[in-house]
Structures are given as C-alpha cells and as structure tokens.
C-alpha cells in the first residue's frame, strides 16, 4: 500500500532517502513501527506520530492512502498539552504501546 509521509524538523536531514514529504510503499497491515523501521529511524527520534491528523502510538495500524506525520522530540513541545497526548509517556521517550 502507498502512504504519504511528512517529516518534521531535523528528521528531514536524518532520513536522507526521503524528501520532506513523500510517498512510501508499505506492506498491507503495517503499523507506525514498521514505517520507522522502513525509514531506519530509531523510535527515540520520533516523539509524535500523527496518522490522518490524530495522535498515534507505534502500534497504530496504517491504511492505504493514509497521511502520516513524524516529529522528533525537539519539536514536540506545547502541542503536547494542546493536543493532549499522554503526559506520563514523558517528552523524551518515544510513544509507547497503548
């Protein structure tokens, strides 16, 4: 399946194989963790995952044509409370399993 991926901030330099916004091919049934693996991004570098504009965890499934945005810890500020992610995950850790 094809999805659209947007990378925020420093991730653009860290994933040199991708432009800032690109189409990526993933196997059906893939989740956010699979996308990170596909991009060779360590989970510690991704603090905020938005799938179609909703905050998600690493295990969240991705569907055909979805729009996935990845943001690193240094960008995941104030949105934290305004978007209301679980605070107990802590800013410095990747999104955990639900």
């Amino acid at each position: 399946m094809r999805i659209r991926v947007l990378l925020g901030g420093h991730l653009r330099d860290e994933v040199s194989s991708l432009p800032e916004e690109a189409s990526v091919e993933l196997p059906p049934g893939a989740c956010a963790r699979d996308l990170l693996e596909r991009l060779a991004l360590p989970p510690s570098r991704v603090r905020m995952i938005l799938i179609n504009g909703r905050g998600c965890t690493l295990s969240c499934p991705i569907g055909e044509g979805d729009r996935v945005a990845l943001f690193p810890p240094e960008l995941s500020f104030n949105t934290f409370v305004s978007l209301n992610f679980r605070k107990e995950r802590g800013l410095l850790h990747p999104p955990e399993e639900e």
Partner: peptide, 14 residues
Amino acid sequence: VYGTNVLTNVINEA
C-alpha cells in the same frame, strides 16, 4: 533552530 514557527507543520497536520 526553527523558532516557534516550527509549530506550523505540526498544527497543520493535526
């Protein structure tokens, strides 16, 4: 590095 405007992509995506 990016200033507060780094929020544009984040809030737009949301």
